[in-house]
Simulated scan of single mutants.
Amino acid sequence: MRRVVVGVTGTLGSVAALHRAAAEARVRDAELRVVLACQSPVGELGSRNGLSPSAPAECRTAAVERLREVLGTAFRAAKPGVALTGLTVRGTPRAALVDTARGVEDLLLVGSGSRAPLRRLLRPSVARYCLAHAACPVLVVPPLPLQTELGTVHRRNFWRIPLDPRELTS
């Protein structure tokens, strides 16, 4: 069965990618597989960092709850119209997405992520990794215009630059 795989985090960009993935799944008559990757707190069970044995289970529970929230928010108004499977995967987002979309007939959708140089330095691009390592076609969804404007407003607030409300209506 063909699948459309999309990674989500709950950001505006990932919700936009989720909606695009649902549209692609309807067109292709494919299953929509929504992936949320989770990483356990530093260390693993049995390590010397002092984590309780229940830390990985708590992390997984939080990831499942987060995935439910994202799907509820994204499809509150209208259902996706395709078979949908939610999946929480332990590991990095980029590896989880490439491993999930391993069939050549699959389609992998990812958000383009931040284009800010500092953020790219601190957090490697999931989209670039998927483009380089996926065995299937990859569709990178650009950020929404609203997301770009919100970023501008946040930067202006951070630097305490006055905002003229007329600039928002252009």
Rank of each mutant, 00 (worst) to 15 (best):
R3H: 01
V6G: 06
V6K: 13
V8R: 03
T11Q: 01
T11C: 05
T11L: 02
S14K: 14
A17T: 10
A21T: 04
A22S: 05
R26W: 06
V27C: 10
D29A: 14
D29V: 10
A30V: 10
A30K: 11
R33T: 04
R33G: 05
R33Y: 02
V35M: 07
L36V: 02
C38K: 06
C38T: 09
S40W: 13
V42Q: 10
L45D: 09
L45H: 06
G46R: 11
R48G: 15
R48M: 13
P53E: 13
P53V: 12
S54Y: 11
S54V: 09
C59I: 09
R60K: 14
T61C: 02
T61D: 03
V64E: 00
E69A: 05
E69M: 05
V70F: 02
V70M: 05
T73G: 09
A74I: 09
R76D: 13
R76I: 05
R76H: 10
K79F: 13
K79W: 15
G81R: 14
G81C: 14
L84M: 10
T85H: 04
T85A: 03
T85V: 08
G86P: 00
G86K: 00
T88M: 04
R90E: 15
G91F: 12
T92C: 11
P93F: 06
A95N: 15
A95S: 15
A95C: 13
A96Y: 10
L97G: 01
D99Y: 13
A101W: 13
R102G: 10
D106S: 02
D106F: 00
S112H: 13
S112Q: 15
R115H: 11
P117N: 15
L121V: 14
L121Q: 11
L122N: 07
R123T: 15
V126D: 01
V126N: 05
A127R: 06
Y129G: 08
C130A: 10
L131Y: 00
H133N: 01
H133F: 02
A134H: 00
A134D: 01
A135F: 02
A135M: 08
L146D: 08
L146S: 11
Q147M: 03
T148D: 07
T148R: 15
L150I: 06
T152D: 00
V153I: 08
N157M: 05
F158A: 08
F158Y: 15
W159H: 15
P162W: 06
T169L: 12
T169W: 07
S170L: 01
S170W: 03
S170D: 07
